[in-house]
Every structure is written in structure tokens, then in C-alpha cells.
Design a protein around this nucleic acid. Sequence first.
DNA 1: CGGATTACAAACCGACTGTCGGTCTATGAA
DNA 2: TTCATAGACCGACAGTCGGTTTGTAATCCG
Lengths: 189, 189
Amino acid sequence: MNLKAERGAATRDKVLAIATRLFAERGYDDTSIETVLQESGLSRGALYHHYAGKEALFEAVLEATESAVGVKIVQAIRGIKDPAAALRTGVLAWIRLAGDPVVKRIVLIDAPSVLGWERWRALEERYSFGMLKAALGATGAVPAEHLDLHAHMLLAAVNESALLVARGGDHSHAEAAVEEFLRRLLRED
Amino acid sequence: MNLKAERGAATRDKVLAIATRLFAERGYDDTSIETVLQESGLSRGALYHHYAGKEALFEAVLEATESAVGVKIVQAIRGIKDPAAALRTGVLAWIRLAGDPVVKRIVLIDAPSVLGWERWRALEERYSFGMLKAALGATGAVPAEHLDLHAHMLLAAVNESALLVARGGDHSHAEAAVEEFLRRLLRED
DNA sequence: CGGATTACAAACCGACTGTCGGTCTATGAA
DNA sequence: TTCATAGACCGACAGTCGGTTTGTAATCCG
């Protein structure tokens, strides 16, 4: 189980990379399996052998993207002791990452409607949301009974500003606004 | 130009009502024009005569929904003098309205990916966002240079909690959390 | 070696969106 | 009253797309 498995994995990776690019460029709806097939030189049968369908392919793309983003955010806050500082740093890192058109389109725009809100939420729980909730909880600035909801609202707020930045807003101005927003939420100053 | 125009308007309204229900129940992708035709008893040609395509039909549905929501929110805050109270009341009203599956699915989930983020934003500007920005500005609690971004973040946060409630969360608990969130943002207490 | 499994190929199917030529009828001017 | 026009509506059709099925070659393993 070596040569075959490796070939399969290589094919999956190739399709994943191409699909990621296409989904990011054109969005889910306007990306046809046909195009993925053409650009990868693969046959229908091969693709459907590795992925159950278009939606499953998108889910794999989403998962890979979220995972990559998660790793970068962890790197950004590594070594920061003060919980509030870690939260602020992580949030700003996330905003910069979400500026990437790939992240923007796949994670923030298409994911909820393609997977359905429920499944999207479950996936977010394992990535951005999970991290943010932990970081927010560590600051102790929010009453425990509201932690979950506040984390959700904060993430949504941060995602929105990330989209605004990606749309072409003033980067540093947006970051300043987010920092102010955070200060108010944590009742700092 | 009376009988004809009326017939046309009646047909448009009928299609709009049926499409609204179907889009809300099944989502944009899983709603076929075919089904809309069946349920309305209309022909393909007739529908495409009134609406340029599936996307245009969705946009009309979205616009009608947003408009109806806007009217209800205006009613809810009518007569309230204190800006902060008006903001709080409007936000809570919006959360309750967004609990409606129709609003949830059409406005909050499908709209961004169907219209594309840009066009969705432009439409929101004329409805929920516009109102919220005005209300937030009236409180004077947020520095002018951050008003726009704070309004965006606040709306996103509120929308998220609306989705959480619609998903089956504790209604009153969520409202309490949102009120707490708002107090912090406005630096009240 | 030989059956089982895996990777891939290609023809094919049903469903769907959008187009196009055409019909019917209300309207308003001649 | 007549008649040209325009808007409402019809249904066949083409093209595309997602997904299925059947088939083949290579690899793995007992």
C-alpha cells in the first residue's frame, strides 16, 4: 500500500489546489466540476473516486484553508503571555489573513450557504471560533454565562471588518477601529 | 395601460410570493425555476418576461424581504426619544425578526453568496445597515471616525446572535447578552 | 500466481437554466 | 370602428452541469 496510496494522495492534493484556486476566483456556483477536470487533466471518474461530489470537494478545500489559517494565527500569538494582548494580536492577525481573497471568498462568503449554516458553524467551532473563545475566556473580562455568545458576536464583528478591509478599505484605520472595539468589549482603559 | 399593467403586476407578485417561500424553505441552490413554474402554474416564457433570471428573481425576493423588515423595525422604535434606547430597541426587534426562517435563510445566509458580497453590501446599506448606523451615530457614544466601522461590526455581531437564536438558542439569554454587548460598546454603566 | 482492491477513464443520464420564435389580447391613436 | 403596437404569456429547444455506471489497467497481498 505505498505506490498506489501515494499516487492517490498526489491526485487529491492536485485537485485540491486547483479547486481552491477556482473556488476563490469564481466562487462555488460559477466553478464547474468540468473546469476542475479540464485544468487538472483528470477524468470524471477519477475525481468522483476521490471526492464524493462538488460539495465534498468544497468542504475539503474549506477545511484545508481554515487549517492553514489556524496555524498562522497560532504562530502569531505564540509566546504572548497577557491574555488581552494575545486576543488583540490574534484578532489583528486574522484580519490580515482574511484579506487574502482565497480566505475571504471561501471561508467568509461561500461556506455558510454551501455547507448550510449548521455544518459551517460546526466547522468554525474547530477553528477560528474555538480559538477566539478560548482567548476571550482567558482574559476574564466577560462574564462566564455570556462568554459563548460574546465570542460569537466578536468573531462576527471581526470577520465583517476583515471583509471591509478586503473590499479595499483603509487597512490601518480598520485595525485601529477593531482595537477600539475590543477595548470597549473588554472594558479596558 | 391598466388591465394589462395590473395583470403583469399581479403575476409578478404571485411569483414573488411563491419564490420567497421556496427560497426560504430550500435555499437558493435547491430551488429550481422549474418548481417555481409548477407551483405558480406559469410558463417559462412568462417568468423570464418579468424577471431576467433566477438571480434577478432572488434579488427581488431579497429586496421585498428587507423592505418589510425595515418597516417593522421603524415601527418598533417609533416614538422613542433616547438614542441609546432606540438603538437597543431596534436591535432587539431585528433579532426577533431574524428569527423568522424566511429572513434568516434569505437575508443572512444566501444573499451574500448569491449576489456577491459587493452587491449585497450595497443593498444592506439601504436597509438594516443604514438604519443601524444612523441610530448608533445618534447616541454619540462612538467617535465619528470609527462610526462606520463600528456600525458594521455591531450589525455583524447582532446578525450572528440572531442566527444563534434562530438555530434554537435560548432567546431571552441571547437578548440579555446582546444588551450587555451593547452596553459595553456604548461604554454605558 | 491470482483474486481483491484501487486509480482512473469515458460514455451516458436526468435535471436545470436560459433562449427564441411565436400567439393572444388590451390599448390608444387614426 | 379600425388597426398597428406593445406587453403578457407560451412551449419547444439547446447547452451545461452534476452525478452515475460500466469498463480497464495497475498494484497489492495472501
